[in-house]
């Protein structure tokens, strides 16, 4: 295939949209994994020492998953747009940047994982606060939340789906 054709296909709405979806889920997915790793290590340590810590550690550890869920939804919406069949180049670029918005803010999952880890430790020391520390763990999600909102608004504004 001639180089021009490749370029044209690459910069078509569908492909750009797909890149957006891929970038979103890739960044957020890796970050969630990292965040879950950090929190998971602490959960393992805390539960190994004292089994009663298991249930609160489990819930706290699951918190950094939110970012990948947001990216997943954005990904689905972009794919819906592609499947609808009228993905212009402009819509493609909009999807790409929507994907970036939710993907890069999704990196907050790593930070959230660290907070979750510290919270698991705090709850292991003092089990009466295990509900309260949830509030701390939710804070880093706000960044991802705004990324999600911006991504959705971009997609809506461009009538992508």
């Amino acid at each position: 295939m001639a180089f021009e054709e490749v370029l044209i296909t690459f910069f078509s709405g569908n492909v750009l949209g797909a890149i957006g979806a891929a970038v979103a889920i890739a960044l957020a997915g890796l970050s969630s994994a990292k965040g879950l790793e950090i929190a998971g290590n602490t959960a393992a340590g805390a539960t190994g020492e004292k089994e009663e810590n298991f249930s609160s550690a489990l819930i706290l550890q699951a918190m950094p998953q939110t970012q990948v869920i947001y990216a997943f939804i954005i990904g689905i919406l972009i794919i819906l747009g592609i499947m609808a069949g009228n993905m212009t180049i402009e819509k493609g670029f909009l999807s790409l940047f929507a994907g970036l918005a939710v993907g890069i803010t999704g990196v907050s999952a790593v930070n959230q994982g660290k907070v979750a880890s510290a919270s698991i430790g705090a709850a292991a020391k003092n089990s009466s606060i295990k509900g309260k520390v949830l509030i701390f763990v939710v804070m880093p999600e706000i960044a991802a939340l705004f990324g999600f909102v911006v991504a959705i608004m971009v997609l809506i504004a461009g009538s992508v789906f």
Binding site: I69, F72, I76, E141, F148, V149
Partner: peptide, 20 residues
């Protein structure tokens, strides 16, 4: 206020988990 907006959007995970 921001919290309310955030919390509402958080329920989007219902769709995501169902889809998975």
């Amino acid at each position: 206020l921001i919290g309310i907006v955030g919390s509402t959007l958080s329920y989007a995970r219902l769709l995501a988990m169902g889809l998975t």
